[in-house]
């Protein structure tokens, strides 16, 4: 049992939950995730560790309410328990001083990529952070990102904050200005990671993306998280979650992520209203 010690609503659909998990907190590195199963009937879902406090023995998870389990998770209060948490899973980000790093986060991806950006910042890189969202109210972690970057750029689809347009346009601009970039890291929705990789590929600009395929055990046992990288099937859970952005078959990933859409709709209907009683 893992006790929830803090909880915060970051937007209409995004929450941060802090959980006691001392062994994971001690071991976890940037880029890794945990598998969460809320209760006896629950499914196992992978969630990125967005931060950890080894002293306090806690990890924090930032998540968006998209399916049944994340909705259920959003209803748990401080003092409640999560039945099962396992991790830290996946390979940590290869952190070193690359030189100049552009870190791109889209929506929730900003929060999920934050520990990676922080680790690269601490490793002495010059960090240019680009955070993006559909509109101003969805721009996340601006203050946190400012602390761990040398330059912070914001892009919104509707222009309500920062640059009016996509983060890829800001990235293209940096490239066109002749900025020396040694690494691009992108965490966000699949179309964004695909678009960023498409921008950097012609320049041979090393690009790391963090993938979010469907998983069950997340220990390498089931293969639900198969992704094609460089024409070879890899397992997102044990070979990833980070891969060379130029090698990933994003089209396949998008399709595979829709495997259970029907079932999700059915669950949403069946449980519509069930989670509304709990506010906070």
């Amino acid at each position: 049992m893992f006790k929830i010690v803090a909880k915060e609503k970051l937007s209409d659909v995004i929450y941060r939950t802090v959980v006691e998990a001392p062994k994971i907190a001690r071991k976890r590195k940037a880029g890794q995730f945990v598998v969460v199963k809320i209760d006896e009937q629950g499914e196992r879902i992978p969630l990125t560790i967005s931060d950890a406090d080894p002293e306090a023995g806690t990890i924090s998870i930032v998540f968006q309410t998209v399916g049944y389990t994340t909705k259920q998770l959003s209803t748990l209060k401080v003092g409640d328990h999560i039945l099962d948490i396992a991790g830290p899973m996946g390979h940590p980000t290869p952190v070193k001083n690359y030189g100049t790093v552009v870190s791109i986060g889209g929506g929730l991806g900003t929060a999920l990529g934050r520990p990676i950006t922080e680790a690269l910042y601490k490793a002495g890189n010059h960090v240019i952070a680009i955070i993006s969202a559909r509109n101003k109210s969805l721009v996340m972690f601006e203050e946190e990102m400012r602390k761990i970057s040398h330059e912070l750029l914001i892009a919104t689809d509707d222009g309500s904050a920062g640059f009016h347009g996509f983060p890829t346009q800001l990235l293209q601009k940096l490239i066109d200005e002749g900025r020396k970039i040694d690494l691009v890291v992108c965490v966000g929705p699949v179309p964004l990671m695909a678009a960023v990789s498409k921008v950097t590929k012609p320049y041979g600009l090393k690009t790391i993306v963090s993938l979010n395929p469907i998983m069950v055990d997340a220990t390498g046992m089931c293969g639900a998280c198969r992704v094609t990288v460089g024409g070879v099937t890899r397992f997102g859970c044990v070979d990833g979650p980070e891969f060379d952005g130029h090698q990933v078959d994003y089209d396949e990933l998008m399709k595979r992520l829709k495997t259970y859409t029907e079932r999700e709709q059915e669950m949403n209907q069946r449980f519509a209203g069930q989670f509304q009683e709990v506010k906070r």
């Binding site: 009937q41 629950g42 499914e43 089931c222 639900a224 099937t233 595979r256 495997t259 079932r263």
Partner: peptide, 29 residues
């Protein structure tokens, strides 16, 4: 092999046995 609807036996069996996907009260699809 990576089309939707291709399972490893491990995944199929894990979903049903361990995660009890045959029972509608369980969440695993």
């Amino acid at each position: 092999e990576n089309f939707c609807g291709v399972y490893s036996a491990n995944e199929y069996l894990t979903r049903v046995n361990l995660m009890k996907a045959y029972d509608n009260g369980h969440v695993t699809p």
